[in-house]
Design a protein around this nucleic acid. Structure first.
Length: 661
DNA sequence: AGCGAGCCGTAC
DNA sequence: GACGTACGGCTCGCTG
């Protein structure tokens, strides 16, 4: 009897919306986890096979795959109905790896969750040769295509025939491989390049002759991992976590397919501003007049050392900041570095990803369900700068302003958990000590307070009214006795306390505090001790983790995802961060179940502690009610403090979001 | 030319 | 062991 279907696809590329599968492979697996059948077919031509597969999709409840979300996108792009996938069970073998493999082994940099890598490591199967052959052939097809493009320009009389061989190679590479970065240099080729690509699409794996010969290998590898790990996963009781991840698969797929709408004009305007400024800002070595590029760190370090007369540890922004007054190059490099980052990572990056959809331009990401040890989602939308970049011309480049409300929507909403990890840390102190850390708890709620009228008073001192504890101020006061809010430099001291709180929560000790805060060792030590006095519960938690790693082979997080590790230092963070990750996964499904019958709401984005939505223009009373209901759904009660979402919204751009009242 | 390590800068 | 988790771009050196 067929219990599972393993699915894999070969596609024209990696874009989850634009690309399509030219081969679909599947394997059928029975209740004993035996692979009973493997099949591959072309969904556009093998109609009988396609119908058979479509029938299987409807009757088999569990889909297995390696990075299964991607293959579901491809099935949708091939025309299979979305309704087949909404309530399926998903077993992703990459996620299984994260749940089953010892976590100290995973922390090793050589551990990767790619199918081929896992197959080598855990199945002893090396299919590198097969993959290599495919890559070589595609690479060859691309070279031919590139040459053909150059020939096209030559035929049209647009190519500069006096270039040296080196210059020629550089130019055609820029035009062919990095067009979005360099197109401003080749305006005369833009039209013909577009026409050429339309008539001669770039080759894809669909054009590689021997794909079919190797296509079933991945099904066998995926089955191998599934069979190897499934019983173990159940026996170590990670199956509930697998189900939690599985339930988030469909919500993430529809979020990914919504994409983010881009204001292309604004992106291009900002690109022009940056180009103009970059053209007049150069780092020139005064000794020889040669230009050094911002990425040439070794050369820059040497130049900074020459100019400052100091021995430096690197060439990053901290180093530059130290020597700005001594090195003119460091000062200009600071400015260029910012602009370069925006230009390469964000502008070129977004142009590379952008696809026209109707009369909009959109970018799509895919969230990686197996990208982290802790269980966090990862993805490339997690790092858009919050603060605008100010140019010397007075212009401001604000990346979040490029992302606008989609055409048919009216709002973008952002439900953001407030101080998520601190609240989870507080819950851990309660689990470990039997009661929460008093100061932490009272930062978020009137814990152990008595309500008199509509005010709260501390149980141990009914004359003192409760107000939320200032966590950063508390560390500061313990570190610097005698200094409080009345001190003229309070803001400065509190900043040190705040930085210490974050660093110590991540596991920092005095030497790193000293380095990061640029204070002397005694001050760093005082700050760390200030933290310890302020939050004795957290100190107890760290100690508990240290004991537990030797008294048991694993520690479960607040949602019972287990970490098999003896690394106290990393675990203290994994237990907090991973609990946040699991809460988010859980809530993604709960909120999906709420909006699935309210199609005016759509998922837009998620970044570790927030979920973004779009909403169409619905009556205000209904909107207010539903926002409250989503907020309520997202909240999570714990013993002493709750996790709550703040709500922000915009009707224009991401950069302009404001509090929802 | 392709690839990987190392550096840098951004997010939570 | 000693500041956690990520991603993307660039340069440089190695390889064939």
């Amino acid at each position: 009897m067929v219990k599972y279907i393993i699915i894999d696809t070969e596609t024209t590329g990696l874009n989850i919306i634009n690309d399509k599968p030219f081969l679909i492979q599947y394997g059928l697996v029975d209740e004993n986890l035996q692979l009973t059948q493997t099949t591959l077919f072309d969904p556009t031509t093998d109609i009988k096979e396609r119908q058979y597969f479509e029938n299987l999709l409807q009757i088999i409840p569990t889909i297995v795959g390696h990075n299964i979300k991607f293959d579901i996108h491809m099935l949708i792009n091939a025309g299979f109905k979305q309704s087949y996938f909404v309530d399926k069970n998903y077993i992703d073998t990459a996620v299984m790896a994260r749940l089953v493999v010892n976590h100290d082994e995973q922390a090793d940099k050589t551990f990767l969750v790619g199918l081929k890598k896992l197959a080598v490591r855990y199945l002893g199967i090396n299919s590198a040769d097969e993959e290599h052959k495919l890559k070589v052939e595609l690479s060859h097809l691309n070279s031919v295509h590139k040459q053909k493009m150059k020939d096209h320009f030559i035929a049209k009389g647009l190519w500069n025939m006096s270039l040296s061989r080196t210059e020629e190679t550089k130019e055609i590479n820029q035009i062919y491989n990095s067009w979005n970065k360099y197109y401003h240099l080749y305006a005369h080729l833009a039209k013909e390049r577009g026409l050429f690509l339309k008539a001669n699409p770039a080759p894809t794996y669909a054009d590689v002759s021997n794909v079919r010969a190797y296509a079933l290998t991945d099904i066998k590898l995926t089955h191998g991992l599934f069979k190897l790990w499934y019983q173990k996963l159940v026996s170590i009781r990670q199956d509930d976590t697998l189900k939690r991840v599985s339930a988030a698969v469909w919500p993430l797929i529809i979020m990914e397919r919504k994409g983010m709408s881009v204001d292309l004009k604004r992106v291009l305007d900002d690109r022009n501003k940056l180009l103009a400024e970059l053209a007049v800002c150069k780092i020139i070595d005064p000794r020889n007049g040669e230009e050094i590029k911002i990425g040439q760190h070794a050369k820059l370090k040497e130049l900074y050392e020459y100019e400052s007369g100091m021995s430096l540890i690197g060439a990053d922004k901290h180093v530059r900041n130290e020597i700005q007054h001594l090195s003119a190059s460091a000062k200009i490099a600071d400015y260029i570095s910012n602009m370069n980052k925006y230009m390469t990572t964000y502008i070129t990056g977004i142009l590379n990803k952008m696809v026209p959809v109707g009369n909009e331009f959109k970018v799509f990401t895919d969230y990686n369900l197996a990208g982290t040890i802790t269980g966090r989602l990862s993805g490339d939308f997690q790092q858009f700068p919050k603060e605008p970049l100010e140019l010397k011309t007075g212009d401001k480049i604000n990346i979040r302003s490029w992302f606008i409300v989609p055409n048919n929507d009216k709002y973008m909403f952002y439900f953001d958990y407030s101080q998520l990890e601190l609240r989870l840390q507080c819950e851990w102190t309660n689990i470990v000590c039997g009661e929460p850390d008093l100061n932490m708890a009272r930062a978020f709620s009137p814990y152990k307070c008595m309500k008199i009228g509509d005010k709260f008073y501390l149980e141990e001192d009914l004359n003192t009214e409760w107000k939320p504890v200032d966590l950063h101020g508390l560390t500061t006061k313990h570190a610097f006795p005698g200094i409080d809010e009345t001190h003229p430099d309070w803001d400065h001291y509190r900043k040190l306390g705040k930085m210490t709180n974050f660093a110590v929560n991540y596991g920092a000790s005095a030497p790193k505090i000293q380095e990061a805060l640029k204070v002397d060792y005694d001050t760093a030590l005082a700050l760390v001790n200030g933290y310890k006095k302020a939050f004795p519960g957290v100190v107890a938690f760290k100690k508990w983790v240290g004991n537990r790693v030797w008294s048991a082979d694993h520690i479960p997080n607040l949602f019972f995802r287990r970490y098999y590790s003896r690394n106290r230092h990393q675990l203290q963070n994994w237990l907090v961060q991973g609990s946040g990750a699991d809460l988010l996964l859980l809530k993604l499904r709960e909120v999906f179940n709420y909006i699935r019958n309210r199609p005016h709401w759509n998922f837009l984005i998620t970044v570790h502690d927030e979920i973004g939505f779009t909403c169409t223009d619905i009556p205000e009373a209904q909107l207010r009610q539903e926002v409250n209901e989503i907020k309520e759904l997202m909240s999570y009660s714990m013993s002493a403090v709750d996790v709550l979402a703040d709500v922000e919204y915009t009707t224009t751009t991401w950069a302009d979001k404001e509090s929802w009242k």
